[in-house]
Design a protein around this nucleic acid. Structure first.
Lengths: 358, 358
DNA sequence: GTTGGCACTCGGGATAAATGAGTGCCAGGG
DNA sequence: CCCTGGCACTCATTTATCCCGAGTGCCAAC
């Protein structure tokens, strides 16, 4: 069973009037947070219908699973299915203002290091959406590396600095029984960089392991040291999947979290990022903006969340995901362009960085 | 006006009976969170007194500012002054169990990198105290550095890796108009390391600036490059004061934060760490355990917090502070030994690491 | 100095009543 | 056939009210 399963709903499942009603309900509910009743709906004069007629439409929508009532004498609230239909067929994205776009471009332009840009993006996502911002940075493992360097920290401690082709830099402290001089480390760094640059860490490891056999034959001490250190450096870089989560405090002001228990559960859930990483990872192959609603994944279901996310990186080499996490009742019309623009901005920035290098 | 101002209270301001009563009230209130009344107090049979007598004592304590009533017809609650007296003169620390000590030692023993140890300490502080754990890591600026290394990332981008004498490693990406070859960078790294190792970054910068004059006379291109790069690398490392904050979610379950508004304010306050850093910094010169209560600093006053903190590092060279942050009503008797032990464990660990190097 | 007694205060919990937004359904009219 | 006004009904929420109990201060007696 796939962990993420979007609801599949066709546009012509609803006639024109029902669609308009559903759209108005979703929009008003997003704006107010309250259940919407037939009277409220009738007041908005785009329908020339009486409350009673609207009630009929609404009852139909409820039967078909697009709306639900919190209790008998309350108005209607969209279900997951309702939101899904809205997002797929009814929503009109409200583009970012020129001012907002400029602000993003300017701030992104000012950063230089990749880590910094990712962090900034996450902060921007959070502050501009007033939701939780997420940037998923996949491991270096899957990308070609540019160089490896070794720095003597202490007699048996060597700091290994791996520079990825995308400008990412990873430090790894290696402890070893062997002793190295500074000169040796430089030689090793040059050798590994010259020999393996452009390969992924995984490929490098395999090559190094293969080299072990040669070394056995040659009994070359230097080669042995190179292999030992290289393998150590390359090992275990894998689990550095990192998810930058920013702005968890934004949830505190949302009426959805008035209850302290729900709040607590959510915070604890955010603390362990594995599930979120899992979900974001599953979208790495998907092109374009992805929206995930409530019951469509186990994580979002439990907390009644939605995720709006998008891939970043080049088309041929996706780097990771950016997105926001918030209650199902969020302004998708604004969130969608925001995430989209920030994803593009980030991709552009990274591409620029890479071009500079060649 | 100093930002941090501890209340100064003498032990003999209260007679024996008043002290016992105050102590019992503080302890019971810490345990229950409720205001303590004279009846409750009389039941605890260490006083052979009637509620009425206790009321007299309590009224006196209130007049002197050690207790207060949330409202008429409620029991008494300790004031800041009451807590201060309790901590200074009445508290009996409850030492960590052997099991707890072993658990700490074992986990600390398993880590190797400094960053990792600091992070772990913060997590341990938080999980073992069920409060917010803090580890303040001061800038590299004030410590002697061990080596500097330069790695070519792109034509005009150089990654500078500074290794501190304490094992800290800082990366800094420098962009420059000059172009460097890999060989040049190695030469520069060697030169700077040989010339300046053992000095603080601040000293290094001053030396480099002085070198500028020599360079003017010599017109040595290599020297010029060295100076330019060196100064760039050393500049602006200063503001990397870092405060590791762990376990903010622990506040969610405390009755003090049942109110969503207070919770929100607190989370936002924790997000900007400057004030906390400021407070912790002010304790860097102080020996031994520091406890700061409510009104004794502006930060703790606003949020009704207390801070229990302690310096770590060697006696001659303090590295930073470890501590916990929580509501005033916390189990000081347990928190004090905990922070103290973790501070010592961290210091020991760092000392060990340093010894290995020599 | 200690104690029991007493009148008084006040927050919080429980209960009851009032409110009002909303629904479903039905019968009548275009 | 669809729309509409009317009507009875439901039910969460708010408001008012009462009561209880924990706690206090004060006083008179021991």
């Amino acid at each position: 069973m796939p962990m993420v399963q979007k609801l599949d709903i066709h546009a012509d499942d609803l006639d024109a009037r029902a669609r308009e009603v559903l759209r108005e309900i979703v929009m008003q509910h997003i704006a107010s947070g309250e259940p919407i009743g037939s009277r409220t709906l009738a007041k908005c004069d785009r329908f020339q219908l009486s409350p009673a007629s609207l009630r009929n439409v609404m009852a139909d929508l409820e039967d078909q699973g697009y709306l639900q009532q919190p209790h008998t004498s309350a108005g209607r609230v969209p279900t997951d299915r309702g939101y899904r239909f809205f997002i797929d067929h009814l929503m009109k994205s409200r583009n970012l203002s020129a001012h907002e776009r400029e602000s993003i471009d300017e701030q992104v332009g000012q950063t230089s290091e990749v880590d910094e840009v990712l962090q900034l993006t996450s902060k921007l996502l959070s502050s501009m959406s007033d939701q939780v911002g997420m940037v998923f940075m996949p491991t270096l493992l899957q990308f070609a590396i540019r160089s490896m360097n070794f720095i003597l920290v202490a007699e048996n401690k060597i700091m290994c600095v791996i520079v990825g082709g995308n400008g990412m830099v990873v430090n790894k402290l290696v402890e070893t029984r062997l002793t190295f001089t500074r000169d040796e480390l430089e030689t090793i760094g040059r050798y590994i960089t010259a020999e393996f640059s452009g390969m992924t860490l995984d490929q490098i490891r395999r090559r190094l392991i293969r080299l072990t056999e040669q070394e056995r034959a040659l009994h070359d001490e230097m080669l042995q040291k190179t292999i030992t250190l290289g393998i150590e450096a390359v090992n275990d870089v894998a689990p550095v999947h990192d998810l930058i989560v920013e702005g968890a405090a934004s949830m505190l002001s949302k009426p959805e979290f008035a209850d302290a228990g729900a709040l607590r559960k959510t915070f604890l859930a955010l603390q362990e990022k594995e599930k979120l990483i899992h979900i974001l990872e599953s979208f790495l192959d998907e092109d374009g903006l992805q929206i995930l609603i409530g019951s469509e994944s186990d994580f979002t279901q439990v907390h009644n969340f939605s995720i709006v996310a998008r891939r970043y990186g080049t088309h041929s080499a996706p780097l990771g995901m950016v997105g926001i996490l918030g209650p199902m009742r969020m302004e998708y019309a604004r969130m969608a362009p925001l995430v989209d623009y920030l994803g593009r901005a980030l991709s552009r920035k990274i591409e620029e960085e890479q071009e500079q290098k060649h």
